[in-house]
Write a protein that binds this DNA or RNA. Structure first.
Lengths: 172, 172
DNA sequence: GTCGAAAATTTCGACGTCGAAATATTAGGC
DNA sequence: GCCTAATATTTCGACGTCGAAATTTTCGAC
Protein backbone atom coordinates (compact mmCIF):
# COMPACT_ATOMS: atom_id res chain seq x y z
CA UNK A 1 0.00 0.00 0.00
CA UNK A 2 0.96 3.62 -0.45
CA UNK A 3 3.09 2.86 -3.48
CA UNK A 4 4.98 5.94 -4.60
CA UNK A 5 2.88 7.14 -7.51
CA UNK A 6 5.51 9.05 -9.45
CA UNK A 7 8.57 7.01 -8.50
CA UNK A 8 11.17 5.34 -10.67
CA UNK A 9 12.42 1.76 -10.52
CA UNK A 10 14.90 2.56 -7.78
CA UNK A 11 12.20 3.94 -5.49
CA UNK A 12 10.41 0.62 -5.80
CA UNK A 13 13.57 -1.33 -5.00
CA UNK A 14 14.29 0.73 -1.91
CA UNK A 15 10.70 0.35 -0.71
CA UNK A 16 11.08 -3.40 -1.04
CA UNK A 17 14.22 -3.34 1.06
CA UNK A 18 12.59 -1.26 3.76
CA UNK A 19 9.68 -3.66 3.94
CA UNK A 20 11.98 -6.67 4.32
CA UNK A 21 14.83 -5.11 6.27
CA UNK A 22 13.79 -1.85 7.95
CA UNK A 23 16.98 -2.01 10.01
CA UNK A 24 19.20 -1.32 6.98
CA UNK A 25 20.03 2.15 5.69
CA UNK A 26 19.66 1.77 1.95
CA UNK A 27 20.22 5.43 1.09
CA UNK A 28 23.42 4.80 -0.87
CA UNK A 29 21.36 2.74 -3.32
CA UNK A 30 19.29 5.83 -4.09
CA UNK A 31 22.40 7.33 -5.70
CA UNK A 32 24.42 4.36 -6.92
CA UNK A 33 21.42 2.40 -8.14
CA UNK A 34 20.22 5.36 -10.16
CA UNK A 35 23.62 6.05 -11.67
CA UNK A 36 23.87 2.44 -12.74
CA UNK A 37 20.38 2.29 -14.23
CA UNK A 38 20.65 5.64 -15.97
CA UNK A 39 23.92 4.58 -17.53
CA UNK A 40 22.45 1.31 -18.78
CA UNK A 41 19.43 3.04 -20.29
CA UNK A 42 21.56 5.69 -21.95
CA UNK A 43 23.92 3.04 -23.32
CA UNK A 44 21.01 1.27 -25.00
CA UNK A 45 19.64 4.50 -26.42
CA UNK A 46 23.03 5.48 -27.83
CA UNK A 47 23.46 2.05 -29.37
CA UNK A 48 20.09 2.32 -31.09
CA UNK A 49 20.94 5.76 -32.37
CA UNK A 50 24.33 4.82 -33.79
CA UNK A 51 22.83 1.74 -35.42
CA UNK A 52 20.96 4.09 -37.75
CA UNK A 53 24.34 5.16 -39.12
CA UNK A 54 25.80 1.65 -39.21
CA UNK A 55 28.27 2.16 -36.37
CA UNK A 56 28.68 0.81 -32.86
CA UNK A 57 29.09 3.14 -29.88
CA UNK A 58 32.69 1.99 -29.38
CA UNK A 59 33.51 2.99 -32.96
CA UNK A 60 32.33 6.53 -32.40
CA UNK A 61 34.14 6.55 -29.07
CA UNK A 62 37.50 5.79 -30.68
CA UNK A 63 36.93 8.12 -33.63
CA UNK A 64 35.85 10.96 -31.34
CA UNK A 65 38.88 10.52 -29.08
CA UNK A 66 41.13 10.86 -32.11
CA UNK A 67 39.20 13.78 -33.56
CA UNK A 68 39.07 15.88 -30.43
CA UNK A 69 42.83 15.56 -30.01
CA UNK A 70 43.01 17.93 -32.98
CA UNK A 71 45.20 17.76 -36.10
CA UNK A 72 46.94 15.51 -37.00
CA UNK A 73 44.31 13.42 -35.20
CA UNK A 74 46.87 11.01 -33.81
CA UNK A 75 46.80 9.25 -30.43
CA UNK A 76 48.79 6.28 -29.14
CA UNK A 77 47.09 2.93 -28.64
CA UNK A 78 47.67 3.06 -24.91
CA UNK A 79 46.02 6.45 -24.55
CA UNK A 80 43.04 5.23 -26.55
CA UNK A 81 42.77 2.22 -24.29
CA UNK A 82 42.78 4.43 -21.18
CA UNK A 83 40.31 6.90 -22.67
CA UNK A 84 37.86 4.16 -23.62
CA UNK A 85 38.31 2.40 -20.28
CA UNK A 86 38.91 -0.95 -21.95
CA UNK A 87 41.83 -3.38 -21.90
CA UNK A 88 44.68 -3.04 -24.36
CA UNK A 89 43.58 -6.36 -25.85
CA UNK A 90 40.14 -4.98 -26.59
CA UNK A 91 41.66 -1.90 -28.13
CA UNK A 92 43.86 -3.92 -30.49
CA UNK A 93 40.71 -5.61 -31.72
CA UNK A 94 38.88 -2.33 -32.19
CA UNK A 95 41.70 -0.75 -34.13
CA UNK A 96 41.95 -3.83 -36.36
CA UNK A 97 38.37 -3.32 -37.40
CA UNK A 98 38.57 0.43 -37.86
CA UNK A 99 41.63 -0.10 -40.08
CA UNK A 100 39.63 -2.63 -42.11
CA UNK A 101 36.91 -0.02 -42.49
CA UNK A 102 39.47 2.51 -43.70
CA UNK A 103 38.66 4.97 -40.93
CA UNK A 104 42.03 4.92 -39.11
CA UNK A 105 45.69 4.19 -39.83
CA UNK A 106 48.08 2.29 -37.58
CA UNK A 107 51.79 3.13 -37.63
CA UNK A 108 54.79 2.72 -35.39
CA UNK A 109 56.04 5.77 -33.50
CA UNK A 110 59.31 6.67 -35.20
CA UNK A 111 61.10 7.71 -32.02
CA UNK A 112 59.59 5.16 -29.60
CA UNK A 113 59.06 2.09 -31.70
CA UNK A 114 57.25 0.12 -29.04
CA UNK A 115 54.41 2.62 -29.25
CA UNK A 116 51.72 2.39 -31.91
CA UNK A 117 50.14 5.58 -33.19
CA UNK A 118 46.59 5.59 -34.47
CA UNK A 119 45.43 8.35 -36.82
CA UNK A 120 42.19 9.26 -38.50
CA UNK A 121 42.17 8.85 -42.27
CA UNK A 122 40.43 11.49 -44.36
CA UNK A 123 37.42 9.19 -44.50
CA UNK A 124 37.61 8.87 -40.71
CA UNK A 125 37.63 12.64 -40.27
CA UNK A 126 34.60 13.04 -42.51
CA UNK A 127 32.72 10.22 -40.77
CA UNK A 128 33.43 11.67 -37.34
CA UNK A 129 32.36 15.16 -38.32
CA UNK A 130 29.11 13.76 -39.60
CA UNK A 131 28.48 11.49 -36.61
CA UNK A 132 29.26 13.98 -33.87
CA UNK A 133 26.54 16.39 -34.96
CA UNK A 134 23.87 13.71 -34.88
CA UNK A 135 25.27 12.32 -31.66
CA UNK A 136 24.97 15.67 -29.88
CA UNK A 137 21.43 16.08 -31.14
CA UNK A 138 20.63 12.67 -29.78
CA UNK A 139 22.23 13.37 -26.38
CA UNK A 140 20.26 16.60 -26.24
CA UNK A 141 17.09 14.64 -26.91
CA UNK A 142 17.92 12.07 -24.22
CA UNK A 143 18.32 14.85 -21.66
CA UNK A 144 15.04 16.44 -22.73
CA UNK A 145 13.41 15.41 -19.46
CA UNK A 146 15.75 17.65 -17.48
CA UNK A 147 15.22 21.40 -17.32
CA UNK A 148 18.32 23.49 -18.06
CA UNK A 149 18.57 24.42 -14.39
CA UNK A 150 18.48 20.74 -13.42
CA UNK A 151 21.33 19.93 -15.76
CA UNK A 152 23.27 22.81 -14.29
CA UNK A 153 22.75 21.41 -10.81
CA UNK A 154 23.70 17.91 -11.87
CA UNK A 155 27.06 18.73 -13.40
CA UNK A 156 29.03 19.90 -10.32
CA UNK A 157 27.58 17.10 -8.20
CA UNK A 158 28.70 14.47 -10.68
CA UNK A 159 32.07 16.16 -11.04
CA UNK A 160 32.62 15.99 -7.29
CA UNK A 161 31.70 12.33 -7.30
CA UNK A 162 33.97 11.54 -10.24
CA UNK A 163 36.93 13.29 -8.68
CA UNK A 164 36.40 11.46 -5.39
CA UNK A 165 36.32 8.18 -7.35
CA UNK A 166 39.71 8.98 -8.81
CA UNK A 167 38.70 10.30 -12.24
CA UNK A 168 41.33 12.65 -13.57
CA UNK A 169 42.23 14.26 -16.89
CA UNK A 170 44.36 11.93 -18.98
CA UNK A 171 47.12 14.43 -19.49
CA UNK A 172 47.36 15.64 -15.91
CA UNK B 1 46.87 26.65 -21.33
CA UNK B 2 44.55 27.57 -18.51
CA UNK B 3 43.77 23.92 -17.85
CA UNK B 4 41.04 23.57 -15.26
CA UNK B 5 43.00 22.80 -12.13
CA UNK B 6 40.37 20.88 -10.18
CA UNK B 7 38.51 19.31 -13.08
CA UNK B 8 37.64 15.70 -13.80
CA UNK B 9 38.23 13.70 -16.96
CA UNK B 10 35.05 15.01 -18.58
CA UNK B 11 36.11 18.62 -18.16
CA UNK B 12 39.26 17.79 -20.08
CA UNK B 13 37.30 16.10 -22.85
CA UNK B 14 34.93 19.03 -23.24
CA UNK B 15 37.84 21.47 -23.34
CA UNK B 16 39.38 19.42 -26.12
CA UNK B 17 36.17 19.61 -28.11
CA UNK B 18 35.89 23.35 -27.68
CA UNK B 19 39.43 23.82 -28.88
CA UNK B 20 38.81 21.75 -32.01
CA UNK B 21 35.18 22.59 -32.67
CA UNK B 22 34.11 25.77 -30.87
CA UNK B 23 30.95 25.81 -33.00
CA UNK B 24 29.50 22.72 -31.27
CA UNK B 25 27.50 22.83 -28.05
CA UNK B 26 28.94 19.95 -26.06
CA UNK B 27 26.97 20.61 -22.89
CA UNK B 28 25.05 17.31 -23.04
CA UNK B 29 28.38 15.50 -22.67
CA UNK B 30 28.86 17.18 -19.32
CA UNK B 31 25.96 15.14 -18.00
CA UNK B 32 25.93 11.96 -20.09
CA UNK B 33 29.70 11.59 -20.13
CA UNK B 34 29.83 11.87 -16.37
CA UNK B 35 27.02 9.40 -15.82
CA UNK B 36 28.77 6.91 -18.04
CA UNK B 37 32.17 7.33 -16.41
CA UNK B 38 30.81 7.29 -12.88
CA UNK B 39 28.94 4.11 -13.61
CA UNK B 40 32.03 2.42 -15.04
CA UNK B 41 34.16 3.42 -12.07
CA UNK B 42 31.53 2.28 -9.59
CA UNK B 43 31.14 -1.02 -11.43
CA UNK B 44 34.85 -1.70 -11.09
CA UNK B 45 34.86 -0.78 -7.43
CA UNK B 46 31.88 -3.04 -6.71
CA UNK B 47 33.52 -5.90 -8.56
CA UNK B 48 36.69 -5.53 -6.50
CA UNK B 49 34.68 -5.43 -3.31
CA UNK B 50 32.62 -8.54 -4.06
CA UNK B 51 35.74 -10.42 -5.11
CA UNK B 52 36.82 -10.32 -1.47
CA UNK B 53 33.81 -12.50 -0.71
CA UNK B 54 34.24 -14.76 -3.72
CA UNK B 55 31.22 -13.51 -5.61
CA UNK B 56 30.58 -11.57 -8.80
CA UNK B 57 28.39 -8.45 -8.84
CA UNK B 58 25.75 -10.24 -10.91
CA UNK B 59 25.50 -12.97 -8.26
CA UNK B 60 24.70 -10.45 -5.58
CA UNK B 61 22.30 -8.73 -7.93
CA UNK B 62 20.23 -11.89 -8.43
CA UNK B 63 20.36 -12.89 -4.77
CA UNK B 64 19.37 -9.41 -3.64
CA UNK B 65 16.44 -9.28 -6.06
CA UNK B 66 15.14 -12.53 -4.61
CA UNK B 67 15.79 -11.48 -1.02
CA UNK B 68 14.12 -8.09 -1.19
CA UNK B 69 10.98 -9.68 -2.64
CA UNK B 70 10.47 -11.05 0.88
CA UNK B 71 9.50 -14.56 2.04
CA UNK B 72 9.30 -17.02 0.38
CA UNK B 73 12.08 -15.29 -1.63
CA UNK B 74 10.67 -16.48 -4.93
CA UNK B 75 10.68 -14.59 -8.24
CA UNK B 76 10.06 -15.80 -11.79
CA UNK B 77 12.94 -16.05 -14.24
CA UNK B 78 11.44 -13.40 -16.45
CA UNK B 79 11.15 -10.89 -13.65
CA UNK B 80 14.75 -11.55 -12.66
CA UNK B 81 15.80 -10.97 -16.24
CA UNK B 82 13.98 -7.64 -16.35
CA UNK B 83 15.29 -6.55 -12.97
CA UNK B 84 18.88 -7.31 -13.91
CA UNK B 85 18.47 -5.68 -17.33
CA UNK B 86 19.99 -8.71 -19.09
CA UNK B 87 18.63 -11.08 -21.72
CA UNK B 88 16.69 -14.17 -20.75
CA UNK B 89 19.56 -16.24 -22.16
CA UNK B 90 22.00 -14.57 -19.79
CA UNK B 91 19.68 -15.17 -16.89
CA UNK B 92 19.38 -18.88 -17.65
CA UNK B 93 23.15 -19.08 -17.44
CA UNK B 94 23.28 -17.15 -14.17
CA UNK B 95 20.64 -19.31 -12.54
CA UNK B 96 22.45 -22.48 -13.67
CA UNK B 97 25.49 -21.36 -11.77
CA UNK B 98 23.69 -20.20 -8.65
CA UNK B 99 21.93 -23.58 -8.55
CA UNK B 100 25.32 -25.30 -8.80
CA UNK B 101 26.49 -23.19 -5.88
CA UNK B 102 23.45 -24.26 -3.88
CA UNK B 103 22.25 -20.68 -3.38
CA UNK B 104 18.98 -20.88 -5.33
CA UNK B 105 16.41 -23.49 -6.39
CA UNK B 106 14.72 -23.68 -9.78
CA UNK B 107 11.20 -25.11 -10.04
CA UNK B 108 8.27 -24.96 -12.44
CA UNK B 109 5.31 -22.80 -11.47
CA UNK B 110 2.55 -25.30 -10.59
CA UNK B 111 -0.25 -23.24 -12.09
CA UNK B 112 1.59 -21.77 -15.08
CA UNK B 113 4.04 -24.44 -16.10
CA UNK B 114 5.78 -22.38 -18.73
CA UNK B 115 7.07 -20.13 -15.96
CA UNK B 116 10.13 -20.99 -13.92
CA UNK B 117 10.30 -19.87 -10.33
CA UNK B 118 13.62 -19.17 -8.68
CA UNK B 119 13.90 -19.25 -4.88
CA UNK B 120 16.66 -18.62 -2.40
CA UNK B 121 17.83 -21.70 -0.51
CA UNK B 122 18.59 -21.37 3.20
CA UNK B 123 22.24 -21.05 2.27
CA UNK B 124 21.27 -18.37 -0.23
CA UNK B 125 19.36 -16.42 2.41
CA UNK B 126 22.31 -16.52 4.80
CA UNK B 127 24.78 -15.53 2.08
CA UNK B 128 22.62 -12.59 1.00
CA UNK B 129 22.14 -11.35 4.54
CA UNK B 130 25.87 -11.40 5.02
CA UNK B 131 26.69 -9.78 1.68
CA UNK B 132 24.18 -6.96 1.82
CA UNK B 133 25.63 -5.50 5.00
CA UNK B 134 29.12 -5.32 3.56
CA UNK B 135 27.76 -4.10 0.25
CA UNK B 136 25.99 -1.15 1.86
CA UNK B 137 29.12 -0.28 3.84
CA UNK B 138 31.03 -0.32 0.60
CA UNK B 139 28.51 1.85 -1.24
CA UNK B 140 28.62 4.26 1.66
CA UNK B 141 32.39 4.40 1.34
CA UNK B 142 32.21 4.98 -2.41
CA UNK B 143 29.91 7.96 -1.87
CA UNK B 144 32.20 9.35 0.82
CA UNK B 145 33.24 12.19 -1.47
CA UNK B 146 29.72 13.58 -1.50
CA UNK B 147 28.37 15.56 1.44
CA UNK B 148 24.95 14.45 2.70
CA UNK B 149 23.37 17.56 1.22
CA UNK B 150 24.93 16.78 -2.15
CA UNK B 151 23.47 13.28 -2.14
CA UNK B 152 20.12 14.75 -1.28
CA UNK B 153 20.34 17.08 -4.26
CA UNK B 154 21.44 14.31 -6.57
CA UNK B 155 18.59 11.90 -5.90
CA UNK B 156 15.61 13.85 -7.29
CA UNK B 157 17.61 14.98 -10.32
CA UNK B 158 18.52 11.42 -11.19
CA UNK B 159 14.95 10.28 -10.53
CA UNK B 160 13.64 12.85 -12.99
CA UNK B 161 16.13 11.70 -15.59
CA UNK B 162 15.32 8.03 -15.05
CA UNK B 163 11.60 8.59 -15.35
CA UNK B 164 12.08 10.59 -18.53
CA UNK B 165 14.17 7.71 -19.91
CA UNK B 166 11.30 5.34 -19.27
CA UNK B 167 12.41 3.73 -16.01
CA UNK B 168 9.40 2.46 -14.11
CA UNK B 169 8.76 0.17 -11.15
CA UNK B 170 8.59 -3.45 -12.28
CA UNK B 171 5.15 -4.04 -10.82
CA UNK B 172 3.59 -0.88 -12.16
C1' DG C 1 78.50 -1.68 -23.97
C1' DT C 2 75.69 -5.53 -21.82
C1' DC C 3 72.12 -7.45 -18.89
C1' DG C 4 67.87 -7.24 -16.53
C1' DA C 5 63.79 -4.67 -15.49
C1' DA C 6 60.17 -1.77 -17.24
C1' DA C 7 56.99 -0.31 -20.88
C1' DA C 8 53.76 -0.93 -24.94
C1' DT C 9 51.29 -3.76 -27.80
C1' DT C 10 49.63 -8.18 -29.57
C1' DT C 11 48.30 -12.97 -29.14
C1' DC C 12 45.84 -16.56 -26.83
C1' DG C 13 42.27 -19.08 -24.28
C1' DA C 14 38.32 -18.66 -21.52
C1' DC C 15 34.18 -16.62 -20.38
C1' DG C 16 29.61 -14.02 -20.45
C1' DT C 17 26.26 -11.83 -23.16
C1' DC C 18 23.35 -11.21 -27.04
C1' DG C 19 19.81 -12.18 -30.78
C1' DA C 20 17.55 -15.68 -33.00
C1' DA C 21 15.72 -20.21 -33.29
C1' DA C 22 13.78 -23.98 -30.83
C1' DT C 23 10.82 -25.89 -27.24
C1' DA C 24 7.01 -26.02 -24.18
C1' DT C 25 2.82 -24.09 -22.40
C1' DT C 26 -1.33 -21.28 -22.26
C1' DA C 27 -5.19 -18.49 -24.20
C1' DG C 28 -8.66 -17.25 -27.80
C1' DG C 29 -11.48 -17.59 -31.93
C1' DC C 30 -14.94 -19.98 -33.96
C1' DG D 1 -12.52 -29.08 -28.61
C1' DC D 2 -8.92 -27.86 -32.54
C1' DC D 3 -5.64 -24.47 -34.51
C1' DT D 4 -3.23 -20.37 -34.29
C1' DA D 5 -1.05 -16.78 -31.83
C1' DA D 6 1.09 -15.30 -27.72
C1' DT D 7 4.05 -16.16 -23.59
C1' DA D 8 8.14 -18.00 -21.09
C1' DT D 9 12.36 -20.29 -20.98
C1' DT D 10 16.27 -22.72 -22.92
C1' DT D 11 19.55 -23.78 -26.53
C1' DC D 12 22.71 -22.38 -30.04
C1' DG D 13 26.25 -19.83 -32.58
C1' DA D 14 28.68 -15.64 -32.89
C1' DC D 15 30.94 -11.96 -30.92
C1' DG D 16 33.62 -8.79 -27.70
C1' DT D 17 36.09 -8.39 -23.60
C1' DC D 18 39.24 -9.78 -20.12
C1' DG D 19 43.66 -11.43 -17.79
C1' DA D 20 47.79 -13.55 -18.60
C1' DA D 21 51.58 -14.82 -21.45
C1' DA D 22 54.45 -13.60 -25.24
C1' DT D 23 56.92 -10.20 -28.11
C1' DT D 24 59.40 -6.19 -29.03
C1' DT D 25 61.62 -2.07 -27.61
C1' DT D 26 63.68 1.17 -24.30
C1' DC D 27 66.05 2.61 -20.11
C1' DG D 28 69.30 2.32 -16.26
C1' DA D 29 72.88 0.20 -13.49
C1' DC D 30 77.28 -1.17 -13.46
Amino acid sequence: MAATPQGDGVDAIIEQWQRVRPDLDCSPMAVIGRLSRASRLLERALKEHFAQYGVEPWEFDVLATLYRSGPPYTVSAGELSTAAMVSSAALTNRIDRLVDKGLVDRELDATHRRRVLISLTDAGIRATEDLVVHHLENEERLLGGLAPAERTQLVPLLRTLLISLGDRPQTG
